[in-house]
C-alpha cells in the first residue's frame, strides 16, 4: 500500500511536490493541538482568547519570518533575542535622554540595523560560520544592553505608546494584524519574486548560485541587516507591551524563534522551507504555550517540552526531506 503510493508519487512530481512536504506535519500538529486544547478547556473554542494569547509571541513571530529567509539561504542568526533586548534598551535610553518618541524609535531601528550589518559583514567578508559568530554576538549584544541599562527598568513612556497589545481591530489585537500582514507580504515576496527564488537557489547550492551570477554575499549581507532591523521593531513592540525595557528581556527567545522556523518545516541545511510553515508553527507555539498555562504547568517546566520539540522537529524534517528525494 505504502509502496504503491510512493511509486505513484515518484511518477507524479507535481503531486509529490505538494504532498510530501514537512509543513503538512505542522498543519496536522496545529489541528491536534487545537482539538486537544479545546478538550482541555472551553476557552480554546473562543477565537478572542487565542488571539489574546498570541500577542506576547508576535515579536518572536516577526523575527521567525525573517529567520526563515536566513535559514533557507543556508545561514542562521542566533543573536536575535539579544538584538531585541539591545534595541529595546537603546530605545528606552534614548527616550529617557530626552529624544522624542519618533527619534527614539528611529535610533532603535537604526541600532538594530547596525547590529545585523555587523553580523552580516563578519559572516560574508571574514567567512566566519554564522552559527558560531552569532553565538559570539549573542553575548556581545546582550552585554552591551546590560552595560547600558544595568539592572534598571527603563520606563516612563507616554500612555499612547504603552500597551499596543490592548488595541484591537474587531477582536484582533493590532500586533497579530501586524504579524499576519508581515507574514503575507514576506510569504508573497519569497514565493513570487525573483529575489525569493534566488534565496532558495543560494541555500541549495551556493557554488552554483555564484556561477549563475547571483550576488550571494550581497544578498546574505542584506538578510542579516534585515534581521537586525526587524529585531529593532520587535524591541520597540516589546517595550510597548511591557511598558519598560530591560537588558534581560527575551532571554532564551532564540529557542522559541528557531523552534517556530524548524517546526514550520524549514530545512536546517538550507534551500527548502516556506513562510506558510512558519506561520502555522507560530500558532502551534501559541496554542501549546496557552494550553500548558491553562494546564497550570509552570512556564519554566514548559522549556522541556519546547526543547524536545525543537530536536524532534529537526530530526523529523530531515527525515521527510530525505524521503521526498533520494
Amino acid at each position: 500500500m505504502l509502496k504503491t503510493i510512493s511509486i505513484y508519487l515518484s511518477e507524479n512530481p507535481t503531486l509529490r511536490y505538494w504532498i510530501v512536504r514537512p509543513e503538512w506535519v505542522a498543519v496536522i500538529l496545529l489541528i491536534i493541538s487545537i482539538i486537544s486544547s479545546i478538550q482541555l478547556s472551553p476557552f480554546f473554542a473562543d477565537l478572542a482568547f487565542i488571539m489574546d494569547s498570541a500577542t506576547p509571541y508576535v515579536e518572536y513571530g516577526l523575527i521567525a519570518i525573517i529567520l526563515t529567509l536566513i535559514i533557507i539561504s543556508g545561514e542562521i542568526d542566533l543573536s536575535i533575542a539579544s538584538m531585541i533586548a539591545l534595541t529595546a534598551v537603546i530605545f528606552g535610553t534614548a527616550y529617557n535622554a530626552g529624544f522624542g518618541m519618533p527619534i527614539s524609535m528611529l535610533i532603535a531601528l537604526f541600532s538594530g540595523t547596525l547590529c545585523g550589518l555587523f553580523n552580516g559583514i563578519l559572516v560574508t567578508q571574514l567567512q566566519i560560520p554564522s552559527i558560531i559568530l552569532t553565538i559570539g554576538t549573542l553575548t556581545l549584544y546582550r552585554g552591551i544592553a546590560q552595560s547600558l541599562a544595568s539592572d534598571f527598568s527603563l520606563g516612563g513612556y507616554p500612555s499612547w505608546f504603552i500597551g499596543i497589545d490592548y488595541r484591537y481591530i474587531g477582536i484582533v489585537p493590532i500586533p497579530v494584524i501586524i504579524f499576519t500582514v508581515f507574514a503575507v507580504v514576506v510569504g508573497f515576496f519569497l514565493s513570487s519574486t525573483i529575489y525569493g527564488k534566488q534565496l532558495y537557489l543560494i541555500g541549495t547550492n551556493p557554488q552554483t548560485a555564484k556561477y549563475s551570477g547571483i550576488k550571494v554575499n550581497r544578498i546574505k549581507l542584506l538578510l542579516f541587516t534585515l534581521s537586525g532591523l526587524v529585531c529593532g521593531i520587535a524591541g520597540v513592540l516589546t517595550t510597548s507591551r511591557l511598558a519598560v525595557a530591560r537588558f534581560n528581556m527575551a532571554t532564551g527567545a532564540e529557542l522559541e524563534i528557531v523552534l517556530m522556523v524548524m517546526l514550520g518545516g524549514t530545512y536546517i541545511f538550507g534551500g527548502r522551507g516556506n513562510i506558510f510553515g512558519t506561520f502555522v508553527a507560530f500558532w502551534i507555539v501559541v496554542i501549546l504555550r496557552a494550553g500548558l498555562n491553562v494546564a497550570r504547568i509552570k512556564i519554566e517546566s514548559q522549556l522541556t517540552i519546547l526543547g524536545a520539540m525543537l530536536i524532534i522537529a529537526i530530526i523529523l524534517t530531515n527525515y521527510i526531506y530525505s524521503k521526498s528525494q533520494k
Binding site: 532558495y200 537557489l201 541549495t204 547550492n205 557554488q207 527548502r272 528525494q325
Partner: peptide, 13 residues
Amino acid sequence: KQMGIFGPVAVED
C-alpha cells in the same frame, strides 16, 4: 553537481 545544477530544484528554475 557542485557548480552546474541546483540538485533538488525544479528543471525550469
